[in-house]
Design a protein around this nucleic acid. Sequence first.
DNA 1: ATGAAAGCGCTAACAG
DNA 2: CTGTTAGCGCTTTCAT
Lengths: 347, 347
Amino acid sequence: MNCARPNRASKQMSRSTIKDIAKALNLSVSSVSRALRDSYEIGEETKKKVLEYAQSVNYRPNPIALGLKERRSHSICVIVPEIANNFFSEVINGIDRAAYSKGYNVFIFQSFEDGVRELQCIEHGIDRHVDGFIISLSGATGTYGHLDVLKEEGIPTVYFDRVPPFDQVDKVVVDNFEGSYNGIKYLIGLGKKRIAHISNPLNLSITKERHAGYLACLQDHGIEVDENLIQFCGFDPAEAHQTIQEMIAHHKPDAFFINSDRLTLNSLRAIKENQHLLNTSIEIVGFTNFKHVGLFNPPMIPIRQPAEAIGAKTVELLIEKIEAKRHVREPATYTLKTTLATNSMVS
Amino acid sequence: MNCARPNRASKQMSRSTIKDIAKALNLSVSSVSRALRDSYEIGEETKKKVLEYAQSVNYRPNPIALGLKERRSHSICVIVPEIANNFFSEVINGIDRAAYSKGYNVFIFQSFEDGVRELQCIEHGIDRHVDGFIISLSGATGTYGHLDVLKEEGIPTVYFDRVPPFDQVDKVVVDNFEGSYNGIKYLIGLGKKRIAHISNPLNLSITKERHAGYLACLQDHGIEVDENLIQFCGFDPAEAHQTIQEMIAHHKPDAFFINSDRLTLNSLRAIKENQHLLNTSIEIVGFTNFKHVGLFNPPMIPIRQPAEAIGAKTVELLIEKIEAKRHVREPATYTLKTTLATNSMVS
DNA sequence: ATGAAAGCGCTAACAG
DNA sequence: CTGTTAGCGCTTTCAT
């Protein structure tokens, strides 16, 4: 740690700038700039000299100055409801890796399921001149007016998972309908008839689709829908607990289908504690990307989303939009597949 | 969505600037700036006029321009090994909330356990003129030279959890020694004699301390240390699996103590699959902040870290340093307590 | 091929 | 109290 201090001359206290280089090499700033950007209107000689010197002082362009000048920042902004969530943190990994490999910086913001903060995040991103947004909507609001800025100012944006209900935007989602349909089908195949559905509130796109899958599958298999077996429940663990408890006590389900990652984990404990009230064994299927579901007791079958792939896809689409010169591709929705991990020991 | 377009005049295409306001109000930019910053050298009248107008056009200062000018950005940079980790994502929550309430923006970067990327993250932060850093070191490197920039340039920095081995920096940690000591004591209290220790490599500060706690506790209770029961193991799930398998097959432990969050989750499955090879019941204690440990089978007792509090503390220290005018407090280490959650059903 | 100068949005001397 | 100006680091006409 305490090695001899490098000689004074080479110490670059505050990062060295293009101006410093110009001075040192007796050139004008514009020439240096051109050399650095590999412009065609610069002499080979000079270019080489500049590049070498820049290297030697570990020159890095100042992205702030660049941003001010160019109105772009080579960075993208990701807004998710919360990071402490298996699914979202995996998606972020996918985004981070993909963006990094394309030379983009990633800013991660959390909306904490709050529409107001979501807007603030968007404004922060805009203020910082990010080149584009990747957003999964907060669950708390049913309005979308705060997204208008993005459209109006033509800022490239890709939504994923929890997407807005209008059309003219890019979306990356999974086939939620099919995901829950297959989950229910699995339960029915096990002979289950009273499949409880624990769901987040219906204002989110994904919730609606998953709910529809549940209904459709029951219908297709001639099982009548019992409204008592459907309960909506927010993000609070205590609420989940109570919901489950009442469901078990009053409506005797023989299986559970749970609608979202957080809700699944929150519900499992309540099921564990109350399942003795039922005389059948209980089967559980739920959306979750938690990797170690195989350790759970009661056991459950997870419906998994290809989170990293979703992240990678959003980046691909976003960068395509950012770098598109003229002809912009029509906005589209990309749908990936969920997996029903019936042998869920595998990570 | 397709509501009548607001009248042309009020449409602020590109964000309105201080200059626009000056023009509109027939003032100089400096007066506007002063009004906005609530300077004392500005007339009440003018100030009010400016403030109102600014409000009406939804003026937001451009942080990029500000950053260029002021060399500070009112933002901090958090660098963690990975986000998809219960502990780190909780800490980030703590940081986010605390920073937000003090008006600071948070940039989150992942080092992916890679020293080179860690340096890049630091450089990114510096380039973006963040006011300070909160860092938990990547596990892959044993060198610390890449942190010198921070010291040399005097950039406020607070380390947490995985901290560097030198003194002149602020650190927020937990009492890892005590944490594992208590964990082992608990196992011994259960009558366990052959307590296996599955540990990450010893290059991290936290690993060393936890290891020391294990050794000390055995010693204090007159249990001889069996080197065979100590195994080191990286971040790869397959490696953990093999390590556990061999441990069980060859050395017949009657309990496990596992050293880190990720490793704990990775090991549990291997224990589950191999525990039938043992004739005793097995007890498990491990560091993890996963919230739903109570659902696990095999059951385990988690050693928890107060992650949100750690995050909040790092922010408090960092902002104190950032905003300190003259007299800088001596760097110090703040040690919080772990919890041995013996009734681990509680979230 | 190279230099000079303007300007991105903002603040902070410096003048009045 | 208010206006003028320079400058943060960089790119980009526009001259030369």
